[in-house]
Amino acid sequence: MTLIYGIKNCDTMKKAMTWLTQNNIEFQFHDYRKDGLEAVLLKQWIKDLGWESIINKRGTTWRALDDETKSTMNDEKALAHALAQPAMIKRPLLIKQGKITLGFKAAEYQALFS
């Protein structure tokens, strides 16, 4: 089963889920805000991809951090901040057969599911 993690009201999430639905791909949606997020899972994502990939630096949550926090960010701090504010995690985060894909690009999804 394909899993997609994110926040329900995010426009990029809506685009990704619409694409999956239109292409008849079964998926399970996990909403960080409603369903929570396990520290062990997030820690594994950070280990696999690096906090720089997992954290959305273009989002308002990241931009609201003070400069010192941003400049001293590391795996441990990213884990703590993302658990406290899951909106900071890049969306969508899609897992298909153990492979993680961050963000949504139709061509990338097409390649992944063909």
Score class of each variant (00 low, 15 high):
His81Lys: 14
Leu49Ile: 05
Lys57Ile: 01
Phe29Pro: 13
Ser71Lys: 09
Thr69Pro: 02
Thr18Arg: 12
Gln44Met: 08
Met13His: 04
Gln22Phe: 00
Leu37Asp: 00
Leu3Arg: 08
Gly6Asp: 04
Thr18Glu: 06
Asn24Asp: 15
Met17Trp: 00
Ser71Asn: 15
Pro86Asn: 13
Glu76Ala: 15
Gly59Ser: 15
Thr18Ser: 12
Gly36Ala: 13
Gln44Arg: 11
Leu93His: 00
Met13Tyr: 10
Met13Ser: 04
Gln44Thr: 11
Ala82Arg: 05
Leu3Pro: 08
Ser114Asp: 08
Ile95Tyr: 03
Ile25Leu: 12
Ala39Ile: 11
Gln85Arg: 15
Lys15Leu: 07
Ala111Leu: 05
Lys8His: 11
Gln97Cys: 01
Gly98Asn: 07
Phe27Lys: 09
Asp35Pro: 01
His81Leu: 15
Leu83Ile: 05
Asn24Val: 05
Leu102Thr: 02
Asp67Gly: 05
Pro86Cys: 12
Arg58Ile: 01
Ala106Asn: 01
Thr101Phe: 02
Leu42Cys: 13
Leu102Glu: 10
Thr2Trp: 06
Gln28Asp: 14
Leu49Met: 04
Trp51Gly: 13
Arg91Asn: 09
Phe104Leu: 12
Pro92Cys: 03
Ala87Gly: 09
Thr60Leu: 12
Asn23Asp: 10
Gln110Phe: 01
Arg58Asn: 04
Met17Cys: 07
Asp66Ala: 05
Pro92Asp: 06
Gly98Ser: 08
Ile46Gly: 15
Ser114Gly: 07
Gln28Ile: 03
Asp31Leu: 10
Leu93Lys: 06
Thr21Val: 14
Pro92Phe: 06
Met17Ile: 09
Leu42Tyr: 03
Lys99Tyr: 00
Tyr32Asp: 05
Ile25Cys: 12
Trp51Asn: 10
Gly103Glu: 01
Lys8Leu: 07
Met1Thr: 12
Trp62Ser: 08
Glu38Met: 14
Ile100Lys: 03
Glu68His: 10
His81Ser: 12
Lys77Trp: 04
Phe27Met: 12
Ile46Asn: 13
Ser53Tyr: 00
Lys96His: 09
Gln44Val: 03
Thr69Ala: 15
Glu38His: 13
Met88Gly: 09
Arg63Asn: 15
Ile100Ser: 14
Ala80Tyr: 06
Gly50Met: 10
Asn74Met: 10
His81Ala: 15
Lys105Val: 02
Lys47Tyr: 03
Ala78Gln: 06
Asn23Lys: 07
Glu68Val: 14
Leu102Arg: 00
Trp19Tyr: 01
Leu79Met: 11
Ala16Asn: 03
Ala39Phe: 05
Trp62His: 08
Thr18Trp: 06
Ser114Arg: 00
Met17Thr: 12
Thr60Gln: 15
Lys57Tyr: 01
Ala16Tyr: 03
Leu94Lys: 11
Lys96Val: 11
